[in-house]
């Protein structure tokens, strides 16, 4: 008697209920007995303050999903397993997710993965397309649940699109009026036209991640607070580096270091990498996912990097004050000096 083992990664989306339903139904069509593994992948590890809330949400989602499976299964022979994955590591890109699913699948003898088309783990944007590619690469069989979502989705992206268009329009119009003369009618009219063109053509490019009406303005304010701090760091680092360069013996000590940062991809990572490059003495050579390869010129700059001041500041900008209080890269053992081979 065949047993079908299914892995269903869950996230809190509109279509998660239908996905679970499809998983149970399709599993029972293929075999008499079904073993349904419901898992939630946690994006954060324990070192990060957000992880406690994520874990609560995950447990809540799992218990709901367990009820759904029991409801759909009826009298059929269905075993339910639930798990939370990735609690001990910081999951970053689709590749990380694909790998933990693969590990779990190998350990439990999973036959097939049923994916929610809207799968959206934790805080990151929708990653399904790249996740499928990574699963293909690993060679794990998956199946996308056929779900109905058109109506809901249209409304949702409608409001998101408006936010993006509006934000791009305002940025562009503001910039235009700064360039031109805000009291001249010609500039006011052409500015509106130009901002319209820019908003329509670039809104989806610039704001590839949906905006949050509450959080996004707060982030802008916090970013403004971050600028003086960054400038102060730059001045300090400049003086230190200048002192080294102008000394005739030039006591530099170049090292390559690898730092696993705890910021998300996209804007936070770019802000961190550019801040690191902007402070003389540290230079981001490579940024693959959250792993930064940083070249440091003098020991003082390396110590600053390992103390993670900039990282905490970036976390403050994007995730708020509570999130800024994380252990430094040195304390959580994410910073190491590597040789030239790592390039």
């Amino acid at each position: 008697m065949a047993v079908e083992r299914l892995l269903v990664p869950l996230s809190d989306t509109v279509t998660v209920r239908q996905t679970v339903g499809y998983a149970v139904q399709s599993g029972l069509e293929r075999a008499d007995s079904l073993e349904c593994h419901l898992v939630v992948a946690l994006p954060y590890d324990d070192a990060v303050p957000e992880s406690a809330r994520q874990r609560e949400d995950a447990d809540d989602l799992l218990s709901r999903a367990r009820n759904w499976v029991e409801e759909d299964a009826g009298d059929a022979d269905v075993t339910i397993e639930t798990a939370t994955l990735g609690a001990d590591e910081y999951l970053f890109g689709p590749r990380d997710y694909a790998e933990i699913f693969d590990d779990y699948a190998a350990a439990q003898g999973i036959d097939r993965v049923v994916l929610d088309p809207e799968y959206q783990p934790g805080v990151t944007a929708r990653i399904l397309q790249p996740l499928e590619r990574e699963l293909d690469r690993i060679g794990l069989a998956y199946d996308e649940a056929p779900v109905e979502r058109s109506t809901r989705r249209g409304r949702l992206t409608g409001s998101e699109d408006f936010d993006r268009l509006f934000a791009t329009f305002m940025v562009s119009y503001g910039f235009y009026l700064v360039l031109g003369d805000p009291t001249y009618w010609f500039d006011l009219v052409t500015g509106a036209a130009v901002a319209g063109i820019v908003a329509v053509s670039l809104a989806r490019v610039t704001f590839s991640v949906p905006l949050d009406r509450v959080q996004s303005p707060i982030r802008v304010v916090r970013f403004a607070l971050y600028i003086p701090y960054l400038l102060w760091e730059i001045v300090k680092a400049n003086i230190a580096v200048s002192a080294v360069i102008l000394r005739p013996s030039m006591p530099i000590e170049p090292t390559l270091t690898q730092v696993d940062s705890r910021v998300r991809s996209g804007l936070p990572l770019t802000a961190l990498a550019n801040s690191i490059t902007l402070t003389p003495g540290t230079l981001t050579v490579r940024a693959t996912d959250q792993r930064l390869l940083v070249h440091t010129l003098i020991p003082a700059a390396r110590e600053d990097l390992f103390d993670g001041g900039l990282e905490k500041a970036i976390r403050f900008v994007f995730y708020g004050r509570e999130s800024a209080a994380i252990p430094s890269p040195r304390e959580r053992d994410d910073a190491e000096i590597v040789g030239g081979d790592e390039l």
Binding site: F175, L179, A195, V198, S201, T206, T270
Partner: peptide, 8 residues
């Protein structure tokens, strides 16, 4: 980030 500015 800079694309909207340059286009404007």
């Amino acid at each position: 980030i800079i694309a909207p500015f340059t286009l404007t």
